[in-house]
């Protein structure tokens, strides 16, 4: 009985592997931008900077409160309609914009919680030796908050890698898009998507290993 066409699956691996870099690129660029944005949001929230704080609250509320797919369609199909200069926006750019804003909203909250969790007396100690607020954040608070936030941030990164698959709805041929094309040519949907699933799975497993390694490194200062 021919349940699975294994030869087809093996043949598909090198074909799909060519699209994996784009998937990883979308996730990595999205993650870096989202981290930067999330740190800014978190600092604005912690310091309660007037006006910016309120704007940030609304931004976070919107991007946490609406589906990522809706946001992607808004950026890709909606924005060009509003601003004609944005007609050149391509699927990849729209995906990165969507991933960045969507995930920065989530990450801002976990970074904020991690910052607030750093022992208040260390903040006083840093101020007492004459550090500025910026120096205090960079050298004392953020390094410690990173350790606390790392597991959650890695979870969001993993989530983001999987969310890149939505880019195929904007016509981007990344891993998911390529699999869809291959499958509709061969009609071997099960085989094709199993190969894609395993590829996502392996990437995520490798990341989990990296997370474990980073946690041990960052915990070095805190073990007796």
């Amino acid at each position: 009985m021919d349940v699975l066409n294994v030869d087809y699956m093996l043949g598909l691996v090198p074909v799909l592997l060519r699209y994996l870099p784009l998937t990883l690129q979308l996730a990595t660029v999205g993650m870096v931008l989202a981290l930067i944005l999330a740190c800014l949001f978190a600092v604005v929230r912690v310091l309660a900077i007037p006006v910016l704080n309120q704007l940030t609250i609304v931004f976070i509320s919107f991007f946490r409160g609406t589906p990522l797919l809706v946001q992607l369609f808004l950026f890709y199909y909606g924005l060009p309609q509003l601003v004609s200069a944005l007609t050149v926006i391509d699927g990849i750019t729209a995906t990165i914009m969507g991933l960045t804003m969507h995930f920065s909203a989530y990450m801002a909250e976990s970074i904020r919680a991690a910052i607030v969790g750093v022992d208040r007396s260390q903040t006083e100690a840093a101020l007492s030796i004459g550090m500025t607020n910026g120096q205090l954040m960079r050298r004392i608070v953020l390094p410690q908050a990173t350790r606390v936030a790392l597991p959650t941030l890695m979870n969001y990164f993993i989530d983001m890698i999987k969310a890149t698959s939505l880019a195929f709805t904007l016509g981007v041929t990344e891993l998911m898009g390529a699999t869809q094309k291959e499958a509709s040519g061969s009609f071997l949907y099960f085989e094709a998507f199993i190969v894609a699933a395993i590829m996502y799975w392996i990437v995520v497993e490798l990341l989990s290993k990296l997370q474990h390694y980073l946690e041990i490194r960052l915990n070095k200062a805190y073990s007796r």
Binding site: D119, S121, Q122, E124, A125, A126, S128, I129, I140, P143, Q144, R147, A221, Y222
Partner: peptide, 14 residues
């Protein structure tokens, strides 16, 4: 001025 705290308040990451 320099300050010595009751609970030491050392920078835990250093």
């Amino acid at each position: 001025t320099a300050f010595v705290f009751q609970n030491y308040a050392l920078f835990a990451n250093k």
